[in-house]
Nucleic acid binder design. Structure first.
Lengths: 349, 349
DNA sequence: CTGAAAGCGCTTACAG
DNA sequence: CTGAAAGCGCTTACAG
């Protein structure tokens, strides 16, 4: 049986009000009784019950974090950032894994509300924000529970969001390839209806345009954001007449597939083919050759998402507007033939 | 302002006791009043406050999950397993990331206790279990909070544990290499004082012995469980006189380093060198060549850890003894030259 | 079948 | 400075 505030009070021979006061630091208490209480706490190994505290104070000091799929290498760094910043401010976090199932995400939101979390970070990195999700989030806001979205797209709805500069990143990647002399640069997108794909495609087009290269529709293809899909797409591109000399893919997993396809077709990377990925997932460092990629600052996104939440909860003063766009950096490794270890972070300008 | 049970009672014109009864399903209620209550719940969009419920019932239906480092690819699958099974039984989980810091793990345990979790899964995969951790866990048990350890070593203490058959896995890996004709098989361990290293080494020795191969101390070396460490270790082994024709490493990250070293030294894998890793982290599928590895069933470990916890909490009937050892499978891919796709799961016998 | 009351472990005005 | 009381939102005997 865990000791309660009553036990401490009895032992220190004071009222529970007094115990509460010394523990919270609110209200005056004689140094002597303070010591008595502290000794009692110590000897009983008393730990206040946060459930009771939360109920009374109407603040649980907990956060909810909903992720689309914890098994996807995109997410662990986000979790890490959220965890770390949350703890810094004394919050603990409920992790909810949608397991790729959007419906489950909705259910998680309900649960978190019932659990009395003080705020929620919803990280899907998905395609469009479904109206029902937006509605649910509005409902939560009305109930006093702020939500911050960790998304891959600019805000189209009125919910604070931390997102990534997809277009700018794609622009950097493509420009890099052009600067290395490539003229036939292919683009492998993910799902064609995904906003991520769309924006990364736009960055690709912009780079071509700014550099006076003509756009060639036959060099553009779409896949599924997975390794095998990327491999198939690359195989098609590389076996056609006049194959591309470089491929920019809309995510790293597909880029890994491209590397595999090149190997199977006896194309050397980077000599015969340059490859750039997108996301900067941990493993890209160890592919053969190491993959040049546009690194999405996932860890930082996690940190910032918590800060935005704290601002809304009034725990931290407002330092900025509602949504934040983060820059992604081009990390240059061996897959393009450029000098390794260089990081290009200049803005799209 | 969220509606409370009072609001529902008022609206349905019954007492809060009645509302509680229809919601919990305990106690008889007329069908008519039941409907009235349900309608009130509906129209107010009432969600019971789980904080209050937990306080009263002395059960929070929450679990704590402590992991050593969420950024390590070893952990996400564990989290996934824990999450999934927990939700199946209606539990939500607090995720605590130690960020490699053991002290933080201890602090997390305190926090979880204060939060009133019904049980805790502590997953470190670390070296020895420090006495202070064992002590803390005992303390929690006495306070009525069961703990299950997700560990890489057999139980040396009296705490329920889910662990992996390290020795058996290493035995399978080494036997596989021997069966392919290798005679000079090197072993690269992790930290020399880690139990994981020790047990995997034992499995390696056992396989040599059973197959009548003599043990060669000069083929055994230790590193740090990291990619670069593995690469360095391999470089030494491969540049000596009479280099090994196969290397078995104590984890996948080091095996990836071995692959890199071989490439740098112009050794072909698997023709000039066979490589086997351990853990089965997701990325091993995409190395060049794909890595043969002993796959630790991390996802299953997560599932089972929750089940063990549930048993202790009396939510699930006891189905087994206190600790559980899981088998690891040898997943055969391209790095040894054997037929790909084969899985050897036969026990050490 | 239904309601009033007590109580889970806290915090916080309100008196003294 | 300190204590008694009310109350956070629930559940659960106890009466009726």
């Amino acid at each position: 049986m865990e000791p309660t505030i009553k036990d401490v009070a009895k032992r220190a021979r004071v009222s529970i009000s007094t115990v509460s006061r010394v523990l919270s630091g609110n209200g005056r208490v004689t140094e002597e009784t303070r010591q008595r209480v502290l000794r009692a706490v110590e000897s009983l190994n008393y730990q206040p019950n946060l459930l009771a505290q939360s109920l009374k104070k109407r603040r649980s000091h907990t956060l909810g974090l909903v992720v689309q799929n914890i098994a996807n290498p995109f997410f662990p760094d986000i979790v890490r950032g959220v965890e770390e910043k949350a703890q810094e401010y004394g919050y603990d976090v409920f992790l909810c894994d949608n397991r790729k199932d959007f419906q489950r995400g909705l259910a998680h939101l309900d649960v978190l509300q019932k659990r009395g979390v003080d705020g929620i970070i919803y990280s899907s990195m998905g395609r469009l924000i479904e109206p029902i999700l937006a509605f649910k989030i509005m409902q939560l806001s009305e109930a006093g529970i702020p939500v911050v979205l960790l998304w891959r797209q600019p805000p189209g709805i009125n919910i604070p969001m931390v997102y990534n500069d997809e277009k700018g990143g794609a622009y950097k990647a493509t420009t890099h390839l052009i600067s290395l002399g490539h003229r036939r640069i292919a683009f492998i997108g993910g799902f064609q209806d995904s906003l991520v794909t769309k924006e990364r495609f736009e960055g690709y087009c912009l780079a071509l345009e700014k550099n006076g290269l003509s756009f060639d529709q036959s060099l553009v293809t779409y896949s599924d954001f997975e390794v095998n899909g990327g491999r198939e797409a690359a195989r098609h591109l590389l076996t056609r007449d006049l194959p591309p000399t470089a491929i920019f893919t809309a995510n790293d997993l597909m880029a890994i597939g491209v590397l595999m396809a090149a190997k199977q077709l006896n194309k050397k990377v980077p000599e015969d083919l340059a490859v750039v990925g997108f996301d900067g997932i941990p493993f890209t460092e160890y592919t053969d050759p190491p993959l040049t990629t546009v690194c999405v600052p996932r860890y930082e996104m996690g940190l910032i998402a918590v800060e935005k939440l704290l601002e809304q909860m009034g725990e931290k003063e407002d330092s900025s507007s509602d949504s934040i766009m983060l820059e992604s950096h081009l990390v240059i490794r061996g897959s393009c033939g450029a000098v390794e270890g260089k990081v290009i972070s200049g803005a799209l300008s």
